[in-house]
Nucleic acid binder design. Sequence first.
DNA 1: TCTTATAAACACCGACCTGTGTACTTAACG
DNA 2: CGTTAAGTACACAGGTCGGTGTTTATAAGA
Lengths: 212, 212
Amino acid sequence: MTELEKGPQGQRRGRGARERVLGASQQLFRDQGINRTGMDQLCAVAQVSKRTAYQHFASKDELVAEYLRRFDPDVMPGVFDRTDLTPRERLLATFELPASTPLCPYIAAAVELHDPQHPASQYARDYKTAIAARLTETAREAGATNPEQLGEQLALLLDGASARTQVLNSDSVPTAAAIAAVIIDNAIPAPSAQPTGERVTTGSAPVPVRGQ
Amino acid sequence: MTELEKGPQGQRRGRGARERVLGASQQLFRDQGINRTGMDQLCAVAQVSKRTAYQHFASKDELVAEYLRRFDPDVMPGVFDRTDLTPRERLLATFELPASTPLCPYIAAAVELHDPQHPASQYARDYKTAIAARLTETAREAGATNPEQLGEQLALLLDGASARTQVLNSDSVPTAAAIAAVIIDNAIPAPSAQPTGERVTTGSAPVPVRGQ
DNA sequence: TCTTATAAACACCGACCTGTGTACTTAACG
DNA sequence: CGTTAAGTACACAGGTCGGTGTTTATAAGA
């Protein structure tokens, strides 16, 4: 543990087996789905022997749960810490996802595993609840009349965009962003301005934010 | 083919093999998911020999596609034909789903199969597009300024409710309905009334309608 | 009745799956 | 150096999967 991580260009095979397995999981579970990714293929991509993989993770189910827990630690939560944006702008920035964002891995896991008791499904619930709480908190800062309601509504829009993008195979995030703009303005009592007509699109600054 | 269907109480085993297979598909694919349902179990539930099942469906993939095509022919489309409702009420009635509605099978199939080229995934796209078109049409009747936009937005809300219900394991349809009420009112230029404050819930008549 | 389509029964195949047992190698650290 | 933890290689078990071959039974239509 002394030589810690051996620099940015990680060595191909050797000591960092666990991290390589998790890295391969992120790639393969996203690209192929969980059920269609076998442990043999996963270990081959990770360049880790299967025996070693099973010494770090008791089962594939546990690996899937850990894969969700470790999923890109700084995806969306980063949006909520942007002090350069107003609370309202932060809520809208949530919908500034890159054009081709894969299906939210939490939704994917919940659907693929199809078992609410599965550790990964439980964590997916926790994560989704946490995101909604963050949105609620920001909605409160933004002065929403009913922050819990707005937070839950925005969370539903994010999930809807993700699911619909997956089914239609075309980006639905802008549609969700347009709805968000309407319901945000509707939920925050305007100090002076009029409540916006119809052509409502998120015309804020381009924000490089990912995740769902 | 003359004795057609043999009455309401279908005979257990015998001539109606194809329909029994499709019936078992609807039950098992919904309850267990597609990937977790093997053909052996499916044929056992359908009380059809596996050999016969494969004489009606060339492969499981084809069965899945046909299962989607046959999925409860009168689920949601029925809402759009209710002449006793105004167009706006019809749009809102779309969200009057029973408390515990399973995940939309089209979303489930698209996520589980994880292949946009799969026949079932293609049909899921077609179906989702058709529903959006119906919503758009109704939105136009309701006098929406931008019917295409409103139709697509409502479709996204339905998908979001379905996906989020699956992940959270708790009903998200009312949340989607509340959003729908807001964006519908926002998209239809009000003849005289004010554009609604905040406490917007679908207070229409209870309509027994299912599907997504 | 005879004919023919439909279905049942049931064993079976090859591929793939998760997970393990065993023996060998390598790298870190004292 | 030697010790010890980490990893490799590889075969293999036990199960499930989708799909097939073969033979026999049965019900419908002529």
